[in-house]
Design a protein around this nucleic acid. Sequence first.
DNA 1: TACGCAAGTAAACGATTGTTGACATGGGTA
DNA 2: TACCCATGTCAACAATCGTTTACTTGCGTA
Lengths: 217, 217
Amino acid sequence: MGNEVQESKTPDGAASVADDELIRSGRDADVTRRALVRAARRRFATEGYRATTVRHIAADAGVNVALINRYFGSKEGLFEACMNRTVDELDPQTRVRAASVDEVIARLLTHVVEAPNADDPLQLLLLLRSSGDENADAIRRRTLERFTEQLAAAAGWSAEVPASQPLLLRAQMAIALMLGLVMLRTATEVQPLASASADQLTEPLEQVLRVLLDTRT
Amino acid sequence: MGNEVQESKTPDGAASVADDELIRSGRDADVTRRALVRAARRRFATEGYRATTVRHIAADAGVNVALINRYFGSKEGLFEACMNRTVDELDPQTRVRAASVDEVIARLLTHVVEAPNADDPLQLLLLLRSSGDENADAIRRRTLERFTEQLAAAAGWSAEVPASQPLLLRAQMAIALMLGLVMLRTATEVQPLASASADQLTEPLEQVLRVLLDTRT
DNA sequence: TACGCAAGTAAACGATTGTTGACATGGGTA
DNA sequence: TACCCATGTCAACAATCGTTTACTTGCGTA
């Protein structure tokens, strides 16, 4: 049943196929590890570190709770693995760079609209969660800062051009909006926002993102 | 030592003096209750519901942990009291009927700009953080929904007017932005957003809030 | 001054949580 | 086919947590 997917670490498609398996089967440490990371990422992102129990994660992944300590050493170790995964995914070297502000806006729109169902927006939420470990917190902050710099660069920001500095602030505001929306749609489930359709969201959201990011207007 | 402040329940000044007392002394149930709510609000806002222990709250307030159950019935009951307090503080001006969307926008701007330094923005975090407890989350969601309804009403929304329904969604997006900004400015401390000056924040933020809330444009 | 009641405390309880150690099982190789 | 080792499970442990109960204390009034 395709559990022998050879993950090569390069094509995003292959990685996401393996990652889409919530319930592992057979005895394969790698598959089990990945199932745990996947389940943990969801839980940590939507419920936070402390409210997430290792028993919930193990149940989501279909394994026994003792395997979390076996493979990651501790709950904290699993959290760190999740964080590292998110950081890797957001790494500039591994991401397809947006060519234009239009693409950026479209991507942000997609994140928010997909938020109740898709993984990517939840991973950004993970960057807002703290386990109480200061080193992890510093990594989180740096990752978010680099992410917003990429976004701003697509809109015309450059660290070397003083006149473009307000763009970085505006990009961070765009991210704040996205994070707030994702959180209210997924973790909090505020109505009518949580069940709003793509059409309902896209119009106001695009207006706002253009105000913040589109310097051509 | 000024512990005999006669609180009359009417002047906000007098209330805030009593509320500024973290450590209560003497035997006065009201003072104790308020000290617990104050301590709890801080803890819940900065650490979240689940990571906050009743023993920490009691220690912060300088009382024995059993008093939380005595006065609020449970941890959850204390959380609800904190929520109600937050709503009351966000409400009073709204209760007086905000004269215009301009005043609403100005108030939202103030919350965000003051975020790294003042108490109130921490209470907004209280509205955002997931609690890991279903009942507490239901309380939180209801509170957010009520608050965004009041905001939308100031901008012209009414539950009885179908044509005004998008305004509620837009109000919720405005709140999402505000909550995201407060989170990035305070808990995550993303730079340069966390240290941005009021001037730097006000211009883009007002543009966005007008796009979302000001139907006269 | 003594008594009663409200406010406060300490200790204990039951449930939950992350972790550990002993054991079970399955798959691959000789 | 049998054996060995990696993977997986179960039961238990220690610590923590919210809650409860029995007791203490302080203040106000008669």
